[in-house]
């Protein structure tokens, strides 16, 4: 049976999700130093039965990876954390309802560039959904979000002039550029609905070939 719980509660219990790698995070109860241990449980919304997470039982860290348990993004979830210290405990503290499809963050796309005399070619790769192991089949976020688009920024390093392109497919050729000039490319993922935007990727710079 449960002890009488007088320990302050874990705080700010929430899912932090990137590319559907869904990790439960929380802050230690106020005023408790070292030595606090935690246990975690989760539930599928609509089923409601709490399921303990053995790998996150009696842990002293303040996070627990629930990616495996929440990998079906057609379901929604709750998770909960309880703290223990010196024979007493806190209440169970719950997250809000977590929807992996709408509540995840998306990494920027991978950008590769090549150039000719007066144009540069850009190829974009959307990140993959989190998977249990490298052997598991990869699922691109493009498959998860059919409306996924790319926003591409191209900067002329000499003139500092910048263009933006919005494209749905994953490649772009930018023609009529100046020879022997460096251009820097960065790209962002934009999903209109549900509304999800990644950050911009690191700039990749390349020079167009000089005129012969």
């Amino acid at each position: 049976g449960e002890l009488y719980c007088s320990l302050p509660n874990p705080r700010n219990v929430r899912f932090e999700s990137i590319n559907m790698k869904n990790v439960l995070h929380w802050s230690a109860p106020e005023g408790t130093g070292d030595g606090v241990l935690y246990k975690v449980k989760y539930a599928v919304y609509g089923v409601g039965k709490w399921i303990r997470k053995p790998e996150c039982r009696n842990i002293n860290r303040t996070w627990c990876d629930l990616s495996s348990e929440t990998s079906d993004y057609e379901e929604q979830y709750y998770a909960s954390v309880k703290a223990f210290l010196n024979g007493t405990c806190s209440d169970w503290m719950e997250t809000t309802r977590f929807n992996p499809l709408t509540d995840t963050k998306i990494d920027p796309p991978m950008v590769s560039v090549s150039s000719t005399g007066k144009s540069i070619s850009i190829i974009l790769t959307a990140p993959e959904k989190w998977k249990r192991s490298p052997e598991e089949e990869s699922v691109s976020l493009l498959q998860v979000y059919p409306g996924l688009q790319y926003k591409v920024s191209v900067l002329n390093k000499k003139t500092k002039k910048r263009w933006f392109f919005s494209i749905s497919n994953n490649s772009l050729v930018v023609p009529w550029l100046e020879p022997g000039t460096t251009y820097c490319v960065s790209a962002q993922i934009h999903v209109t609905t549900p509304l999800l935007d990644s950050g911009f990727s690191k700039e990749r710079c390349i020079a167009t070939l000089k005129d012969k």
């Binding site: 919304y45 609509g46 089923v47 409601g48 809000t96 609905t193 549900p194 509304l195």
Partner: peptide, 27 residues
């Protein structure tokens, strides 16, 4: 997009008014 934006703005508020985790209407 408009419906999504409207719902996102009130999702936490509305869902916090539904304490029943073990039942669903749609899923």
């Amino acid at each position: 997009t408009e419906i999504r934006a409207g719902f996102s703005a009130i999702k936490a508020n509305i869902q916090s008014r539904d304490p029943i985790r073990s039942r669903s209407i749609l899923s």
